[in-house]
Amino acid sequence: MNGNGVLAQTLRWLNDPLNWQGPHGVPALTVEHLGMSAAAVLIAAVVALPLGVWLGHRPRGGGLTVVASNTSRALPTLALLFIFATTGLGFGNRPTVLAAALFAMPPILSHAFTGVREVDPAARDAAGGMGMSAARVLGTVELPLALPLIGAGLRTAAVQVVATVPLAALVGGGGLGTIIVTGFATQRYGQVVAGGILVAALCLAVEAVLAFGQRVLTPRPMRAVAVGR
């Protein structure tokens, strides 16, 4: 056991200015990491948000949504990445962004679905009674009331994506995961630990920023609802 040795190596790696500059330095990798994550969340949101809202808006059906989103937990991200690599999608960042986007869809979808579906029927009825069309009910009543849950879904998805993107390094991609994977490959365990700490710190930071942003963006009367994730 030389845990102390590893700790010293970790600190040395983190304190080495060479690791913090250039195209493979920590800042550059972080920017790449966040860029890939943003792209993945965007793709997932574009597909899953309208679908979830629509499924929730319809009076019936949609039970399958929740089942499908639960089952998707069992599919290993790694499997999808490796399968992508053997197809035309190839290696690196693009397939990783796609895989991360695919895994970000279930939380966005199920949260949007639940948010719209669980809107108080009385509010929906009142809007209908005032002569609003279905589309107006959706836009002015259901969506605003579902917003806290939709936000929670996006937040869950974003944090999950930031945590998934490191796997890109296993298929020749970039981002902060490269520090870990290169460290394992060269048996520099101080670097491995340093990479692990950086990835974990980034995830926690993203989670904190999004939680704060969600709080600020939620209108005060609705804050109590927004606690659930």
Binding site: A163, T164, G196, C203
Partner: peptide, 20 residues
């Protein structure tokens, strides 16, 4: 909640050099 946010790759990366 905090621990759950830590990605598995990062956790394995931190654990392995210690546990060997």
């Amino acid at each position: 909640g905090v621990l759950y946010t830590v990605p598995s790759l990062a956790l394995f990366a931190v654990l392995y050099p210690v546990l060997r």
